[in-house]
Simulated assay, not measured.
Amino acid sequence: MALEDVCGMNKVPFMMRFDERQSMWQQEQLRTATSNFENPYCLMAPPFERPAENLPKILAHCGVNMDFAHGTTTLGFKFQGGVILCADSRATSGQYIGSQTMKKIVELNDYMLGTLAGGAADCVYWDRVLAKECRLHQLRYRKRMTVDTAARIICNISNEYKGMGLVMGMMLAGYDDEGPKLIYVDSEGMKSSGLVFSVGSGSPYALGVLDTGYRYDLTDQEAYDLAKRAIYHATSKDAYSGGIVRLYHINAEGWRNICNTDCADLHDFYCAAMHDKKKDGQNGDAGDQELPCGSGWTSRKLPEDNVQTKLASV
């Protein structure tokens, strides 16, 4: 064996034992599969072209049922006190609830946050890569990365992997030299700045509440209540949203986690408040507490429907 080592004959493929060749093959496969540890921007693509189009065909041919339906509700808006981010915590795969404690708001640095919507694995992985880039940028240039720069990095990643099945829609919110920023980016390479955004399957319900109660001159407490109220209504209407409502506030001092409230507790609070308001209304008191969507239209419409039903039965 010593002579083989000196002459290098043990490295010739036909002179190697089977277990050695098997071990080398496994190491090579492991090195290839974990290449993103050295370069996080280098990911293994599926071994066929146009994965987003061809994967469903392959699964149908093999008789494998894989449901890629996604659901979530995240929102963000700017107001005079900074930026508010709020999200639920339910992670689903089709009809299956995988987790009720998913953290959909990620701390990128002390002054910037990112939200998750779409594929959980895609969003979590690239948010971690972005957090690493933020830290390296701060070490290299002795200043924090701006929100626009972070959004441009995600857009470049999305364009590079466009058409490969990447499902990602996130909001980047932070406070830099130009003030508060709120930017939406997705897996199609779209980048948009705005005052109000909501992403996910429950976003139509959340936007309905935001359109009703949002204004730029909100106080901090009003902004907190509006964000929690919007997510609560989305979770009550959207089966793919639920769990814990996490609320964050970003201003010139950095971000703060305001509260983490269970949806069941919010439901009990709003139902009790609605009952108190109806009771005060019957006594002639309008009530001091503003309630979500308390237009009274439903209470007026129900008796009319009952009358129509009785007339139809007669």
Results as ranks from 00 to 15, higher is better:
184 Y>S: 09
205 Y>K: 05
192 S>I: 12
203 S>E: 02
193 S>K: 15
188 E>N: 15
201 S>C: 14
203 S>T: 10
183 I>S: 00
178 E>S: 15
176 D>A: 14
205 Y>W: 06
198 S>D: 01
180 P>S: 08
190 M>G: 15
177 D>C: 09
196 V>I: 11
184 Y>R: 12
205 Y>Q: 11
202 G>M: 08
184 Y>Q: 04
183 I>E: 09
191 K>H: 07
202 G>V: 07
182 L>D: 05
202 G>I: 08
189 G>R: 02
179 G>V: 07
204 P>Y: 08
201 S>K: 08
179 G>E: 03
187 S>T: 02
186 D>V: 12
202 G>W: 02
198 S>L: 03
183 I>N: 02
186 D>S: 06
176 D>P: 00
181 K>W: 03
186 D>C: 04
190 M>H: 15
177 D>A: 11
175 Y>V: 02
190 M>L: 13
198 S>T: 05
177 D>S: 03
187 S>G: 13
175 Y>P: 01
203 S>K: 10
181 K>T: 04
183 I>A: 05
196 V>A: 10
201 S>P: 09
187 S>I: 10
177 D>W: 03
179 G>P: 06
175 Y>S: 01
180 P>T: 07
186 D>P: 05
176 D>Q: 08
185 V>T: 12
202 G>D: 12
193 S>I: 01
182 L>Y: 00
189 G>Q: 01
193 S>R: 09
193 S>P: 15
203 S>V: 10
189 G>L: 01
196 V>R: 13
197 F>T: 13
184 Y>L: 14
176 D>C: 13
205 Y>M: 04
197 F>M: 15
190 M>K: 14
193 S>G: 14
188 E>H: 08
201 S>D: 13
184 Y>H: 14
181 K>A: 07
183 I>T: 12
186 D>Y: 04
182 L>A: 03
178 E>H: 15
179 G>F: 03
202 G>K: 03
199 V>M: 07
182 L>I: 02
189 G>H: 10
186 D>I: 05
197 F>Y: 12
189 G>I: 04
175 Y>Q: 11
203 S>F: 04
176 D>R: 09
202 G>Q: 09
186 D>R: 06
199 V>I: 08
185 V>P: 00
189 G>P: 10
197 F>P: 13
176 D>L: 07
191 K>I: 07
192 S>D: 06
180 P>Y: 08
205 Y>S: 13
197 F>A: 10
189 G>E: 07
199 V>D: 11
182 L>N: 02
180 P>K: 00
187 S>Q: 06
201 S>F: 08
204 P>F: 06
175 Y>I: 05
200 G>A: 14
185 V>K: 00
191 K>T: 14
176 D>E: 09
186 D>W: 04
180 P>Q: 07
198 S>V: 05
199 V>W: 01
181 K>L: 09
180 P>W: 00
189 G>N: 01
